[in-house]
Amino acid sequence: MTTLAKHSRSASAASASPKPQGSHRRLGDLKIALLFIAPAMIGFVFFYVLPTVRGIYLSFTEYNILGDPEWVGMDNYVAIAADPLFWNSLAVTGQYVFLNILLQTALALGLALLMHNVAKSTIIRGTLLLPYLMSNVIAALLWFWMLDYQIGVVNQFIEWSGLPRVAFFGSEAWAIPTQALINTWRHMGYTALLIFAGLQAIPSHVYEVAKLDGASAFQTFRKITIPLLRPVLVLVLVVTVIGSFQVFDTVAVTTAGGPVNATRVIQYYIYQRAFTESDFGYGSAIAVILFLILALVAFIQMKFLKGNESDLD
C-alpha cells in the first residue's frame, strides 16, 4: 500500500512538469494492462495458485500420496509445533541463509564493481559465469568428491600447505558453511552479472557530476552507486534470500541432512517427510509454514529496502 502511495506521488511529481494530460490517461490503463498480463496470468493461476491451494488443503489432511487424503484439521500443525526436528530445521536453515547471503552478496557486489571498473571484458565475465553453467546437482556431487576428507583433492592441497585436513561435510561445524560455499561458488558470477547489469544502467553523467564536485571513490560509491543500484540490489537480495531458504539440491545429493541433524534444512525436511516417509500432509504443513515465513521476510525486505522505488525519479 505504501508503495502504491509512493508511486502515485512520484508519478504526480513527474507529471507536475510539463504535460499533465499524460498522467491522466495512465490512470485508466486497466484494460490494456489485463491484456499484457493475460499470458502470465494463465501460468500464475494454473501452475502456482492452484497447486498452492491444493497444498494448503493437503496440509490439513493425512495423505500418503498413494491413498486418499483424510481430513485431520489442525493435527499436523499441532504436531509440528512440538517437533524438535522442525525447530532444528529452522535454525539450521537460518544459519545457512545468513552465511550464504553474506558471502554471496558481498562477493558478487565486489566482483561486479571489479568488472565494471577494472575489466569490462566479456571473457572475464563469461569465465566467472562458468560455475553457473554446471547444474546444482552436478556441482554438489563434484565438490562432495573434491572436498572428501580422505581422498579429496582439496584436502590434499590443504595438507600440502601444512594445514590439518578438514571434514568439510562430516563435521557439524563445517557442514552448513560448506553447503553455503558450494552455492556461493556456483552463483557468485551469476549474481555479479545481475549487479553488473544494474551498474551499467547507471547513467554516466551522474558520475561525471560527482567527479566535478570532487567526490572521492568511496563517497561516489556510497552516495551514488549504492542508491542508484538499489532496485537491482533489492532484486538480488530478495532472490538470494528466498533462494537460500529453499536450499535443497546440494543437501540432498551430499549430506542428506547429516551429520546427525546438522544439515537437515527445512526444504530437505519437507522432502523427507513428504516423499521419503510418505507423509505428504505433514510435509505440506511445513511447506505452508515456510511459505508464511518467506512472505514475512520478503515483506520486511521490500519495506525496509524500498525496492519499488528508483532513485532516478
Binding site: 502470465a40 495458485v49 498452492t52 497444498g55 528466498i242 526444504q267 516423499f275 510435509g283
Partner: peptide, 15 residues
Amino acid sequence: FLGTMLVPPIFTALP
C-alpha cells in the same frame, strides 16, 4: 505474482 516465488517448488511439484 511475486508471492509465487515464495512457494517451495517441492510443494507444487506433485500437484
